[in-house]
Design a protein around this nucleic acid. Structure first.
Lengths: 217, 217
DNA sequence: GTAAAATTTTAGATTAGTCTAAAAAATAAT
DNA sequence: ATTATTTTTTAGACTAATCTAAAATTTTAC
């Protein structure tokens, strides 16, 4: 059983490690958790003792299979609650993150199964991120940031990397929501801005923005 | 701003004081919170410092107007979430208490207003207890336990005092749900059991049970 | 390949919430 | 109206999560 704080650390480790693919350094985790390296070292020891991560001094941490499942359950809850807030309560998709950060720690497997059913077993959340099923299985479609696409590419917006509120508001304004059609028309050499079609609507976006829009084929 | 633990103490004080009507003793609070008197004394000092209660040594605590409002907001959240769990997710009314104990601490005024709207601004929760409005106003109907009723009394089940899971299951079995018609047919002198009509269905209930069913005229 | 810089860990303190055991105050009993 | 009992408070200690400052280790630079 993990405490609320331990759950948040584990979730951050899972994300920083790209789902368990690579080791996470103490400092990176300290930045992500908005805390100090010394605090991270302490917490790492506790999470190792609980066998959700493995820890090698000065080299960083890796999630264990057990830890991965636990992290995915927190992510499942987070994304189901976000879906609830948008689909049922009428929140805008850029307003739900902070509340979902709280709701994700409610501990009741029955509640989550009922909520999943109530929402109609959604596959993705309002940001387009996949929702792990009750066994922790997640369907990973390769998501590519717009700035890496070739001219002429056509696809669908899958998710947004940064969850900064101002970015999300801007994307909403230009109609760049998950699920929407997207096509690359051109790239500007000089400032790396791009001309794209969002749901058949022509817009220009900066490098900072194109890096944060993830698409699938 | 109160911590989760402080919120739970304040809620218990509010309930034990009958909504602020009388003082609460340290030991009573220790029993209600399942803790030791020494811990209660410590917490009382903190709640006094935050001016949600007043405290006189060896005499007990009283809630301040500010504390009453804060307690009512927690109760509002608890009862709205219970309504959500039963009306929308299909929980039985005897299964929701523990989950609502967690959900009531989610801090987002906007979430609660949206939830209230989604539920259609309910006046009472699944146990028949009134839901305070967004200003903390609560409609108090005098609720009388069945064991204190005269023979021939007719009314409606309003609430259940004890939230013990076994009691709630039993009440469900005999059809004793909030909102259901009730009539007192007779009292047995010898063991204080009673014969009552629940939704036109005749049943006998023990003293232990009749004390816990609250009715309104 | 050693010195300098950056990173990570340890050591020692702090706060919130809790506990046990002992002291203080209030209530009850003779 | 003293003594005995119960209740409440204080004193001191413990765990979880955090911090600052110093020590240890790794990486980078010349």
């Amino acid at each position: 059983m993990l405490s609320l704080t331990e759950e948040n650390y584990l979730k951050a480790i899972y994300h920083l490690s790209d789902g368990g693919a690579k080791a996470v350094l103490t400092n990176a985790l300290a930045v992500a958790m908005n805390t100090k390296a010394a605090s991270v070292t302490d917490m790492i020891k506790k999470l190792s003792a609980k066998e959700v991560i493995t820890y090698e001094k000065y080299y960083g941490v890796n999630v264990t299979p057990k830890g991965k499942t636990e992290a995915l359950m927190v992510i499942r809850k987070h994304r189901l609650w976000e879906t609830f807030l948008v689909d049922k309560l009428g929140f805008a998709w850029d307003e739900v993150h902070e509340v979902a950060e709280q709701l994700e720690h409610i501990n009741s497997p029955r509640l989550i199964e009922k909520l999943d059913e109530f929402l109609g077993y959604p596959k993705v959340d309002p940001h387009g991120d996949p929702i792990p099923d009750h066994k922790g299985k997640i369907k990973i479609q390769p998501q590519v940031p717009v700035d890496q696409l070739q001219i002429g590419f056509q696809g669908k917006i899958a998710a947004v990397k940064d969850s900064d509120s101002n970015l999300l508001k801007y994307l909403d304004k230009i109609g760049a929501r998950p699920g929407v059609k997207i096509k690359v028309l051109g790239k500007e050499e000089y400032d790396e801005s791009m001309e794209i079609l969002i749901d058949d609507h022509r817009v220009f976006i900066s490098k900072a923005v194109s890096q944060n829009i993830l698409v699938v084929g």
